[in-house]
Protein backbone atom coordinates (compact mmCIF):
# COMPACT_ATOMS: atom_id res chain seq x y z
CA UNK A 1 0.00 0.00 0.00
CA UNK A 2 2.69 2.40 0.98
CA UNK A 3 4.36 1.92 -2.33
CA UNK A 4 1.16 2.72 -4.23
CA UNK A 5 0.52 5.89 -2.29
CA UNK A 6 3.97 7.20 -2.98
CA UNK A 7 3.45 6.60 -6.68
CA UNK A 8 0.16 8.55 -6.78
CA UNK A 9 1.72 11.58 -5.22
CA UNK A 10 4.26 11.93 -7.99
CA UNK A 11 3.21 14.63 -10.46
CA UNK A 12 3.14 13.34 -14.03
CA UNK A 13 5.49 15.10 -16.43
CA UNK A 14 3.70 17.95 -18.32
CA UNK A 15 2.69 17.18 -21.88
CA UNK A 16 4.84 19.09 -24.27
CA UNK A 17 2.82 21.57 -26.35
CA UNK A 18 5.74 22.74 -28.39
CA UNK A 19 4.52 21.07 -31.55
CA UNK A 20 0.95 22.34 -31.19
CA UNK A 21 1.49 25.49 -33.32
CA UNK A 22 2.98 23.37 -36.08
CA UNK A 23 -0.01 21.05 -36.09
CA UNK A 24 -2.43 23.97 -36.23
CA UNK A 25 -0.43 25.59 -39.02
CA UNK A 26 -0.64 22.38 -40.98
CA UNK A 27 -4.43 22.47 -40.59
CA UNK A 28 -4.52 26.09 -41.71
CA UNK A 29 -2.57 25.33 -44.83
CA UNK A 30 -4.90 22.46 -45.61
CA UNK A 31 -7.94 24.72 -45.33
CA UNK A 32 -6.32 27.48 -47.35
CA UNK A 33 -5.62 25.11 -50.22
CA UNK A 34 -8.76 23.01 -50.17
CA UNK A 35 -11.45 25.63 -49.76
CA UNK A 36 -12.59 28.72 -51.57
CA UNK A 37 -13.91 31.99 -50.25
CA UNK A 38 -17.62 32.21 -49.66
CA UNK A 39 -18.98 34.51 -52.35
CA UNK A 40 -22.10 36.15 -51.10
CA UNK A 41 -24.70 35.88 -48.44
CA UNK A 42 -27.90 34.37 -49.71
CA UNK A 43 -31.04 36.46 -49.67
CA UNK A 44 -32.98 33.67 -51.27
CA UNK A 45 -33.50 30.25 -49.78
CA UNK A 46 -30.60 27.94 -50.50
CA UNK A 47 -31.49 26.57 -53.94
CA UNK A 48 -32.33 22.90 -54.01
CA UNK A 49 -30.25 22.06 -57.07
CA UNK A 50 -31.43 19.43 -59.54
CA UNK A 51 -29.54 16.16 -59.89
CA UNK A 52 -27.57 15.21 -62.98
CA UNK A 53 -24.87 12.79 -64.05
CA UNK A 54 -23.18 14.51 -67.01
CA UNK A 55 -21.78 17.50 -65.14
CA UNK A 56 -18.35 19.06 -65.50
CA UNK A 57 -16.45 20.81 -62.73
CA UNK A 58 -16.14 24.55 -63.03
CA UNK A 59 -12.54 25.61 -62.88
CA UNK A 60 -11.15 29.11 -62.44
CA UNK A 61 -13.49 30.47 -59.80
CA UNK A 62 -12.52 34.03 -60.62
CA UNK A 63 -14.16 33.76 -64.04
CA UNK A 64 -17.46 32.47 -62.71
CA UNK A 65 -20.37 34.72 -61.78
CA UNK A 66 -23.34 33.37 -59.94
CA UNK A 67 -27.01 34.06 -60.49
CA UNK A 68 -29.37 32.56 -57.95
CA UNK A 69 -33.02 31.88 -58.68
CA UNK A 70 -35.08 30.65 -55.75
CA UNK A 71 -37.83 31.69 -53.38
CA UNK A 72 -36.88 34.62 -51.08
CA UNK A 73 -35.71 33.75 -47.58
CA UNK A 74 -38.37 33.77 -44.87
CA UNK A 75 -37.52 37.26 -43.64
CA UNK A 76 -37.89 38.75 -47.10
CA UNK A 77 -41.05 36.98 -48.14
CA UNK A 78 -43.23 39.89 -47.04
CA UNK A 79 -41.38 42.14 -49.44
CA UNK A 80 -40.93 39.86 -52.43
CA UNK A 81 -43.62 37.19 -52.12
CA UNK A 82 -43.02 33.47 -52.27
CA UNK A 83 -42.39 33.05 -55.99
CA UNK A 84 -38.79 32.48 -57.13
CA UNK A 85 -36.77 35.68 -57.55
CA UNK A 86 -33.34 36.52 -58.93
CA UNK A 87 -30.39 37.35 -56.73
CA UNK A 88 -27.40 39.13 -58.27
CA UNK A 89 -24.45 39.70 -55.96
CA UNK A 90 -25.91 40.96 -52.68
CA UNK A 91 -29.38 42.05 -53.75
CA UNK A 92 -32.61 40.72 -55.15
CA UNK A 93 -32.99 42.36 -58.53
CA UNK A 94 -35.25 42.53 -61.53
CA UNK A 95 -34.45 40.63 -64.73
CA UNK A 96 -33.62 43.89 -66.51
CA UNK A 97 -30.61 44.45 -64.20
CA UNK A 98 -28.79 41.41 -65.53
CA UNK A 99 -27.12 43.23 -68.43
CA UNK A 100 -25.61 45.75 -66.00
CA UNK A 101 -24.55 42.95 -63.65
CA UNK A 102 -22.80 41.07 -66.44
CA UNK A 103 -20.98 44.21 -67.52
CA UNK A 104 -19.72 44.92 -64.00
CA UNK A 105 -18.63 41.33 -63.50
CA UNK A 106 -16.82 41.35 -66.81
CA UNK A 107 -14.97 44.54 -65.95
CA UNK A 108 -13.71 43.04 -62.71
CA UNK A 109 -12.01 40.23 -64.62
CA UNK A 110 -8.57 40.35 -66.19
CA UNK A 111 -8.88 41.70 -69.74
CA UNK A 112 -7.53 38.68 -71.59
CA UNK A 113 -9.77 36.24 -69.73
CA UNK A 114 -13.03 38.08 -70.32
CA UNK A 115 -14.05 35.85 -73.20
CA UNK A 116 -13.86 32.90 -70.81
CA UNK A 117 -16.44 34.35 -68.47
CA UNK A 118 -18.97 31.78 -67.31
CA UNK A 119 -22.29 32.43 -65.64
CA UNK A 120 -23.35 29.74 -63.22
CA UNK A 121 -27.11 29.51 -62.82
CA UNK A 122 -28.04 28.21 -59.41
CA UNK A 123 -31.72 27.57 -59.83
CA UNK A 124 -34.06 25.84 -57.45
CA UNK A 125 -35.46 22.68 -59.01
CA UNK A 126 -38.99 23.81 -58.14
CA UNK A 127 -38.68 26.98 -60.23
CA UNK A 128 -40.55 27.23 -63.51
CA UNK A 129 -38.79 27.61 -66.85
CA UNK A 130 -40.40 31.00 -67.50
CA UNK A 131 -38.09 32.95 -65.20
CA UNK A 132 -35.07 30.89 -66.29
CA UNK A 133 -35.81 31.65 -69.93
CA UNK A 134 -36.09 35.37 -69.19
CA UNK A 135 -32.69 35.26 -67.52
CA UNK A 136 -31.18 33.33 -70.43
CA UNK A 137 -32.61 35.85 -72.88
CA UNK A 138 -31.04 38.73 -70.93
CA UNK A 139 -27.72 36.89 -70.84
CA UNK A 140 -27.85 36.52 -74.60
CA UNK A 141 -28.47 40.24 -74.93
CA UNK A 142 -25.52 40.94 -72.64
CA UNK A 143 -23.39 38.56 -74.73
CA UNK A 144 -22.58 36.28 -71.80
CA UNK A 145 -23.02 33.07 -73.74
CA UNK A 146 -21.15 30.58 -71.60
CA UNK A 147 -23.48 29.30 -68.98
CA UNK A 148 -23.55 26.40 -66.61
CA UNK A 149 -26.62 24.97 -64.96
CA UNK A 150 -25.44 24.21 -61.47
CA UNK A 151 -26.33 20.67 -60.38
CA UNK A 152 -25.52 18.14 -57.71
CA UNK A 153 -24.12 14.76 -58.70
CA UNK A 154 -26.58 11.90 -58.86
CA UNK A 155 -25.26 8.57 -57.72
Amino acid sequence: MAQFRSKEKKTPPPISTQSLPDIIFMLIFFFMVATTMRESTLLVKKPHLPKATEFVKLEKKSLVSNIYIAAPSNALQKLYGTQPVIQLNEAIEDVSKIAKFVELERESMPANDRSQMTVSLKVDSKARMGIVTDVKQELRKANALKISYSVVPKN
Partner: peptide
Protein backbone atom coordinates in the same frame (compact mmCIF):
# COMPACT_ATOMS: atom_id res chain seq x y z
CA UNK B 1 -0.81 28.11 -30.72
CA UNK B 2 -3.60 30.53 -29.79
CA UNK B 3 -2.76 32.85 -32.67
CA UNK B 4 -2.75 30.04 -35.17
CA UNK B 5 -6.01 28.71 -33.72
CA UNK B 6 -7.58 32.10 -34.36
CA UNK B 7 -6.38 32.01 -37.96
CA UNK B 8 -7.71 28.51 -38.35
CA UNK B 9 -11.14 29.49 -37.09
CA UNK B 10 -11.18 32.46 -39.47
CA UNK B 11 -10.51 30.18 -42.43
CA UNK B 12 -13.11 27.71 -41.26
CA UNK B 13 -15.76 30.42 -41.13
CA UNK B 14 -14.90 32.37 -44.26
CA UNK B 15 -14.47 29.60 -46.79
CA UNK B 16 -16.52 26.83 -48.28
CA UNK B 17 -15.48 23.41 -49.46
CA UNK B 18 -17.95 22.69 -52.24
CA UNK B 19 -16.80 23.03 -55.81
CA UNK B 20 -19.28 24.16 -58.39
CA UNK B 21 -20.48 21.46 -60.75
CA UNK B 22 -22.77 22.10 -63.65
CA UNK B 23 -24.07 21.23 -67.08
CA UNK B 24 -22.09 23.38 -69.44
CA UNK B 25 -23.92 25.00 -72.35
CA UNK B 26 -23.33 27.71 -74.91
CA UNK B 27 -26.19 30.09 -75.66
CA UNK B 28 -26.72 31.26 -79.24
CA UNK B 29 -25.89 34.95 -79.83
Amino acid sequence: ADISFMLLIFFLAATTMDTDKGLFRMLPP
